[in-house]
């Protein structure tokens, strides 16, 4: 039953998950509520990164506009709250439907292109949305809006409590990872992965690849919108800056660092990215120099991110343990 535990990446990921599950307890014991914030932030962005990895890692569609969905999700909390509507079901419903709609419209257009063209057209749509919100004075323009009260789920969930928020996000993330696992291993996932490697062949096999890819893009955007819903609640604040292309870029870095080949990679990548940033920025004003060098070294000497590294270590271990099988 626990056969999957025989491979190293799975053991590591299970350990990380277990650690995340007990983290609030540790933080409380150490009376360091700040670290719970940091972890919550990591988990929220991990949701976004996992969603992005669905299109990048499995679908081969590199989007540089994913932060737009975070922004949409967050504004779906902020704008109703601005009008004193705090009902969480409305917020979440809006976040899901608006981000799905945006993904459908922009995806339908963007997916006509490939490669760098796709990167740039997704960026273009995100920038258009960014400038739209910058010009909306009613919602604070570029100053943004403070969210004075978090989404209210009729007493079912009290998101004002940091621990509740943390566990809500954690459960969402775990649910999402399970969904990804099922999705990737289903026929749908195989078609998407097939498109990444050879779209022409998939078409020859009779698949309407455009529709598969569009569906994949919409799923990804919608999930990222949910991450935005959480981020708005968590930061109690929305601003167009959330949709800035540099945030889209950061999401890409997170998944590259974690490794695009696995489902869990982006979670590790997000944690690595944010923890490193937090640690270095406390050291020196010039921390970005070190950060930049780390990014460069990771790629030049890396082996497919953390996930790739674990797989590599695992195969090496196995090879050493059973040398006779190799020959």
């Amino acid at each position: 039953m626990f056969k999957f535990l025989e491979n190293l990446p799975a053991r590591v990921y299970l350990a990380v998950t277990a650690l995340l599950a007990v983290a609030p307890l540790l933080v409380t014991l150490g009376s360091q509520p700040f670290y719970l914030d940091l972890l919550t932030r990591i988990l929220i962005l991990a949701i976004a990164a996992v969603s992005l990895n669905l299109i990048i890692g499995f679908g081969g569609m590199i989007s540089l506009g994913h932060a737009a969905f975070i922004g949409i999700g967050a504004y779906c909390v902020g704008i109703p709250a601005h009008y004193d509507i705090f009902n969480g079901f409305i917020h979440l419903g809006l976040a899901i439907s608006c981000s799905a709609a945006f993904a459908l419209i922009t995806g339908a257009i963007s997916l006509r292109t490939h490669g760098l063209y796709f990167i740039m057209i997704t960026l273009a749509f995100a920038q258009m949305l960014y400038f739209t919100f910058v010009s909306l004075d009613e919602y604070g323009a570029d100053d943004g809006l403070i969210i004075y009260q978090r989404s209210d789920f009729n007493g079912l969930l009290n998101l004002e409590n940091p621990t509740t928020l943390y566990y809500t996000v954690l459960v969402t993330l775990l649910g999402l990872l399970y969904l990804m696992h099922r999705l990737v291993h289903a026929r749908f996932g195989r078609v998407i992965i097939g498109c990444k490697h050879n779209e022409k062949r998939m078409q020859a096999l009779g698949f309407d690849t455009y529709r598969y890819k569009l569906t994949c893009y919409v799923i990804s955007g919608t999930i990222c919108g949910i991450a935005g819903f959480f981020l708005g609640n968590f930061t109690n604040f929305i601003s167009p800056e959330m949709m800035d292309w540099t945030h889209s870029g950061e999401l890409i870095f997170m998944i590259v660092i974690g490794g695009t080949a696995g489902i869990f990679g982006p979670v590790v990548g997000t944690a690595f990215f944010l923890l490193l940033e937090e640690m270095l920025s406390g050291l020196t004003q010039y921390w970005q120099l070190i950060f930049g060098l780390v990014l460069i070294l990771l790629v030049v000497f890396g082996k497919g991110g953390v996930h790739g590294l674990l797989v590599w270590a695992d195969t090496r271990q196995t090879a050493q343990a059973q040398p006779e099988n190799d020959s």
Partner: peptide
Amino acid sequence: LDHVLVTFGLILV
């Protein structure tokens, strides 16, 4: 993806 990551690192440097 690697290009984007490395050259972004270069920007920071």
